[in-house]
Amino acid sequence: MGKTRVISKGYRHGTRDKYSKKYRTKGRPGLARYLVNFKRGDYVDIVADPSIQKGLPYSFYHGRTGIVFNVNRNALGVEMTKIVGNRQLRKRIHVRIEHVRKSRCNESFLHRVKENDKKNLGFAWFCLRKQQAKKEGKSIVCKRIPEGPKEMKTVTASQDDVEVLAPLPFVENYF
């Protein structure tokens, strides 16, 4: 009778590296992790903390970014897309706060929105600016414009600067 191989099918199987914590970050999370305020519509990154077993998301969701759709006392409802075969499914999971951090994926967009509000006519809200500009017969361009190709240059060289390189003739050195 041969030996049978045991294949692990547990909730944390195959996560030795994925759930390992970095040097000097082992142990329980600090208080700051619990004091973050989350609101519906926030972008969050799911980063599983292996030192907290409660509310741990399945390993597939580790490192994914989603949007908060529900806020509970200890947990957040996070919605994200998952590609299954040839289609995208919207998945909704509840994850405890220890396994979630605010995402920085939206920062540049929000910064650009604030800059656009300050730009041009200086009204507080974008809608008011648009309306005011329309009355005055102006148009506000808030789109990012690509840099485009560089300007053309002509390089000139004098005869002294030009050095013609030619290959050396092959010399056979048989002894």
Rank of each mutant, 00 (worst) to 15 (best):
Arg92Ile: 08
Gly27Gln: 07
Asn173Pro: 02
Cys105Arg: 07
Ser51Leu: 00
Val47Ile: 15
Asn37Ile: 14
Ala124His: 08
Leu110Val: 05
Asn120Trp: 09
Lys3Asn: 07
Ile97Asn: 10
Gln131Ala: 09
Met152Gly: 09
Met152Lys: 12
Lys150Tyr: 12
Lys119Val: 10
Ser139Leu: 09
Asp161Val: 06
Asn72Arg: 01
Asn116Ala: 13
Leu31Glu: 15
Thr25Ile: 08
Asn116Leu: 13
Lys134Glu: 12
Arg5Pro: 02
Val164Asp: 11
Lys82Cys: 06
Cys105Ala: 13
Arg5His: 03
Arg73Ser: 10
Ala124Gly: 04
Lys39Glu: 15
Met80Asn: 00
Glu136Cys: 07
Tyr43Met: 07
Ser139Glu: 15
Lys18Val: 12
Phe38Trp: 06
Glu163Leu: 12
Tyr43Glu: 13
Ile52Met: 04
Lys114Arg: 12
Ile140Tyr: 02
Lys153Ala: 07
Asp160Glu: 14
Arg129Val: 06
Tyr43Pro: 01
Lys114Gly: 04
Trp125Val: 12
Val36Phe: 03
Lys9Pro: 00
Val36Ile: 15
Arg87Pro: 00
Lys21Trp: 02
Leu165Lys: 11
His99Ala: 03
Val68Ala: 01
Arg101Cys: 10
Lys153Met: 12
Met1Ala: 09
Val68Trp: 04
Ile52Val: 15
Glu115His: 10
Asn106Gly: 01
Met152Trp: 12
Ala133Ser: 11
Phe123Arg: 04
Val100Glu: 02
Thr15Trp: 02
Ile52Tyr: 03
Ile97Met: 06
Asn116Arg: 09
Ser20Thr: 13
Ser158Phe: 09
Arg92Cys: 04
Gln53Arg: 11
Thr15Phe: 03
Gly27Asn: 10
Gly77Leu: 07
Phe123Ile: 03
